[in-house]
Design a protein around this nucleic acid. Structure first.
Lengths: 216, 216
DNA sequence: TCGCCGACGTAACATTGTTACACCGGTCGG
DNA sequence: CCGACCGGTGTAACAATGTTACGTCGGCGA
């Protein structure tokens, strides 16, 4: 027996990886059914048999992106020291996004017109977000904050997404790469000191006030 | 004389307004040269004579968007009390973005594939950003902060963009509209208390530390 | 063995961005 | 006054893209 698992879904994975490769190398504009099919070594029909069309293919790219993204964040959480897990997660977030800008844009900015992620895809995306919630919750427990970790994590997420997406869209008027990095780190520091209640009493007052507002 | 100004550029404005209308009503996916031309009452050639092609049209939409966006922010700055100009600006930012989501996405998220704004367009965008810088600088002068207003304004911009773009992409797991509004306001409060140095001494220490990091 | 069903390719169709070409009206030089 | 030019316009075509119809092939069960 030369085939322990029937290589039935082989073309499916070939198509998906070819599509992701084209997306990474040539951008979302070059992501056509024909180019993907020829890169995968099959005809355009294959895209329709395995994904139902271009929308289905983009959705698979969307889900695959969140899985890879989540794996990268997971790896960081596993290695980072507990005290700075949130900071490490933020750096991993930016690093992955800048390493996969076109993929990130498909996931967060709806780069492909007329694509709307299904409920399944949104569940996957939500699962990735939960990692940030867990790391935030752990940090808040350690510090003694009793606010809502989900809300705090969302503030962190929104800020990270803001810096990163402006950076990818080249809409930040930064002078060079190191400027962008310093800017992100400065913002991150303000966040961890402001959003995640710092140890000082005055900061705690602010955080409690904010938490009260959010929870109402 | 029935024509004080020769209505020569009439078709140009007709095409542009038709394109913006289609973008607002049907989204970026429906923004085709033919649909725009028929809506403007001319042939597809008109788009090429006045804009050089679809990319030129999208660039005009990009520039027009920043002009309208800037006008909305300007109006807010003119009416808002000086003490809360930054807060008012932030609310105007979110309000305009949520009222014109497809336009906002064309401007900030590169929704149209293979579109890259020219230097001219980026200059217009930069001009709009300057309003935020000026309001931030005025606020910082009033409070006595001597940091770099451009950097502080960028932190504000990134955060606002983060909340708004996640909201537009429906990637925030919010329960309803009022939840999103409270969330944005909570984040805005943290920002104005953290990024824009608050009056209290402890907060000032944090801000100085941050400013020192940024300026290096 | 016969028939079915899933995977696959070829070829066509509608749509879209783009270009070539002809027309038409005004302007300017002779 | 007239002919050439030139900018704005429309028609029609072309290439690329998403999609679908149809035929083929191979394995599997009745």
């Amino acid at each position: 027996m030369k085939k322990p698992q029937p290589p039935l879904r082989d073309t499916r994975t070939a198509i998906l990886s070819a599509a992701i490769d084209i997306l990474h190398v040539h951008g979302a504009g070059a992501l056509t059914v024909r180019s993907v099919a020829t890169a995968a070594g099959c005809s355009t029909t294959g895209v329709y048999t395995w994904f139902g069309g271009k929308n289905g293919l983009v959705e698979a790219i969307f889900i695959d992106g969140f899985q890879r993204f989540g794996a990268a964040l997971d790896a960081t959480r596993a290695t980072a020291p507990g005290d700075h897990q949130v900071v490490g997660l933020a750096h991993a977030y930016r690093t992955w996004a800048l390493a996969n800008p076109t993929h990130y844009m498909v996931m967060f900015a709806r780069t492909v017109p007329d694509f709307c992620p299904s409920l399944d895809a949104l569940v996957t995306a939500h699962g990735t977000f939960q990692q940030l919630v867990e790391a935030t919750a752990a940090h808040m427990r350690r510090v003694g904050d009793d606010g809502d970790p989900t809300e705090v994590a969302h503030h962190l997420w929104a800020a990270m997404h803001g810096y990163v997406s402006l950076e990818i869209a080249e809409m930040d008027m930064a002078v060079d790469e190191s400027h962008r990095t310093r800017r992100f780190e400065a913002g991150l520091r303000m966040l961890t000191e402001g959003v995640l209640r710092a140890s000082s009493a005055s900061a705690a007052v602010t955080a409690v006030d904010v938490a009260g507002t959010v929870d109402r």
